[in-house]
């Protein structure tokens, strides 16, 4: 299926542009340093001074131009990628937050919105208009259940700054108190990602354990899950795992 937002794909594409350039530059400079250090090493007993060449302005100017071109290319592709990331929406303060701003580039498929509430040291996922809330318990971490496709998120915090991070989607966003951070994520394939989500912003004592599971369902399966889930206790109907990922 086509996703309006495919953060992982966009990341990989951009990364694939950056890394060959970086590796190439590194190879050239390391090799250059090695050659210079070996080739122009002082021979034993040679007390003479070398020829004093200390500038090549034209060569240096050409080199600067080359660097500027590389920088321009990288900035161009970075900006292009950013243009297609609908996540780059301005944050709004929580008081004025009804619906998140309508985003023109978003497809109507992004039907559901999840309110992410972070608090030391757990997550709460509220499904807007569905009356469902996923919360972690004392010993368990919550499961974010989403359908395949685009899902809108609106993150906030009850205490300190947290950061909503799903490594396999190559994406994170900070959650601030009294503020909402809005973003859209596309989920390509169904599957269960154990303890994949985490808090990326240092938030105190149990920061290392502030994780969540990500469970992506086919659209039909998600509808069934919603129907079954409505009116039930938060912990039910999600894979029950304790903090270390073992099934209870």
């Amino acid at each position: 299926m086509s996703l309006a937002v495919d953060t992982a794909r966009q990341y990989e594409d951009l990364f694939d542009l950056y890394w060959p350039i970086a590796v190439g530059v590194m190879a050239v400079i390391w090799l250059g340093l090695l050659v210079l250090a070996v080739r122009y090493r002082r021979r034993e007993g040679d007390e003479t001074w070398p020829e004093q060449t200390h500038e090549r302005p034209r060569a240096e100017a050409a080199y600067v131009a080359l660097l500027a071109i590389i920088a321009a290319v990288l900035v161009f592709f970075t900006f292009t990628t950013m243009g297609s990331l609908t996540a780059d929406l301005p944050a709004e303060s929580a008081s004025g937050a009804g619906q998140p701003d309508a985003d023109p580039s978003e497809t109507p498929a992004a039907a559901i919105t999840v309110d992410v509430v972070a608090a030391r040291w757990n997550w709460r996922f509220r499904y807007r208009g569905l009356g469902i809330e996923q919360v972690g318990g004392g010993r368990s971490i919550p499961t974010l259940v989403v359908p395949v496709g685009d899902v809108r998120f609106s993150a906030t915090s009850l205490d300190v700054i947290h950061s909503f991070f799903i490594p396999y989607l190559r994406f994170k966003r900070d959650a601030f108190p009294e503020r909402r951070t809005n973003f859209t994520l596309g989920f390509r394939k169904p599957g269960f990602h154990e303890a994949e989500g985490r808090c990326a912003e240092f938030c105190g004592l149990r920061h290392a354990y502030m994780n969540f599971h990500v469970w992506v369902l086919e659209r039909d399966a998600f509808r069934r899950w919603v129907r079954a889930r409505q009116g039930r206790a938060p912990q039910e109907l999600t894979p029950a795992l304790d903090r270390d990922g073992r099934r209870r």
């Binding site: 950056y18 970075t78 994406f171």
Partner: peptide
């Protein structure tokens, strides 16, 4: 320095 790359590796 590239935001889309930083969204993943930031704070890692």
């Amino acid at each position: 320095a590239s935001p889309p790359l930083d969204y993943h590796v930031h704070d890692t």
